[in-house]
Design a protein around this nucleic acid. Structure first.
Lengths: 210, 210
DNA sequence: TGATATTGTAAATAAGTATATAAAATTAGT
DNA sequence: ACTAATTTTATATACTTATTTACAATATCA
């Protein structure tokens, strides 16, 4: 019943594996069977060494003549990235951003599913938005537990973040993706990822002006 | 007329400076004058050394007794992060995501302004969406030049990315923030930042299951 | 005056990427 | 059929970027 990963991969490698898999899938659509490291690299703005190194880390080998077997490689990446049962995801705050994420994500990954959303707007509660049922924020604790949700995406206004996060942590949530500008702190064992569009744009502006 | 930065800061430091500034601004709202490195660190889930090191890199000094002068520090960060004229930003693809980014960003930063958006949907073209004029995608080249836009945010469907990027690069755009799953390649001198929600969620799922 | 709290920074460690090179397979030339 | 050149994977080594640890210097307070 244990689901421990066989590999302890660097974060950046995990990110690239996620992208390799999708790029490779497109490639299959084009009828290709094999791919060389430099081809994959070219499609992703990387060096071929980077690609080979990543694949080395997951213990996948290619051939000097034909490169890597695409279908096979996709499966190997899947065996590392996907858990057996998959993860169930909730969107906290079904505004523009929550909706666009949900729509965008829908059906993209087999083992990851957005199964619930929460909001405090009575007009949204009880309806389905972007194909996902929207519940009252106050019911969060029980529903997350009952629905066996392990990952939450926070897309509420920044002021509400701290409170929402606190509630989430009480449910025993395992991963949080925070899209607000309010930095969060989570206890050991909970995995946190933060993305802030203002930071991204300011960083761009800084480097654009160097 | 040159606008070269005095400092060559690491990317991660730039990201944190962006966040420091906003956290500090909130802090002023609470009537505080000074702040210690460990306080700032605590608000951002960092160590105090990290904070002091960042401030050291920008040459800002505090006092052992009172810590850092908030207002002063905000200004120093501004002098490093903001260019004199500021940057003008365009959103390419005014769908849910483009709209939510625009709404969220509006008025948040003085020196960064979203001044135009582009779409191919006739219902959107010619209107203002989220307070920003929406133009025909075909007019992109001239408008970006005329409006003196230096940064573009790509929020079109993934299939359209490559073409849009190509057009953008022809305008001489200086920075691109790509939100699609389609990896981009840009020439030397153009600064590229990419964020992909699928990757983020897959990464979370991976680490949640370790 | 001695203990404590803080900044400032050097040095060590860790994470991530790129360079260098070996080994294997293929291709081209003779 | 043999050999040399080429292409590719695999991986060790070096380098670069980022974070943490260690500690010196200074100010404050009991």
């Amino acid at each position: 019943m244990s689901n421990k990963k066989k590999f302890d991969l660097p974060g950046k490698t995990v990110e690239r594996l996620s992208k390799y898999r999708r790029v490779l899938f497109d490639r299959i659509g084009e009828g290709k069977i094999n791919i060389y490291s430099h081809e994959l690299a070219g499609m992703m703005n990387l060096t071929s060494v980077q690609v080979r190194r990543d694949l080395m880390l997951i213990g996948y080998s290619g051939s000097q003549s034909t490169g890597y077997a695409i279908k096979d490689l996709i499966e190997v990446i899947g065996s590392i990235m996907d858990s057996n049962e998959g993860e169930r995801i909730a969107i906290i705050g079904m505004g523009d951003l929550g909706r666009s994420i949900t729509n965008y994500f829908k059906g993209k990954r087999e083992k990851l599913e957005i199964v619930a959303s929460f909001d405090n707007n009575p007009k949204k509660i009880g309806r389905k938005i972007a194909g996902v049922p929207c519940y009252d924020e106050n019911e969060m604790t029980e529903i997350i537990k009952n629905e066996n949700i392990s990952i939450a995406v926070i897309t509420v206004p920044s002021e509400a973040t701290k409170l929402v996060a606190q509630k989430l942590l009480q449910t025993g949530i395992k991963g949080i993706l925070n899209f607000t500008s309010e930095p969060l702190t989570v206890p050991e064992g909970v995995y946190l990822e933060e993305y802030d569009i203002i930071t991204s744009l300011e960083k761009l502006a800084y480097f654009v002006n160097k």
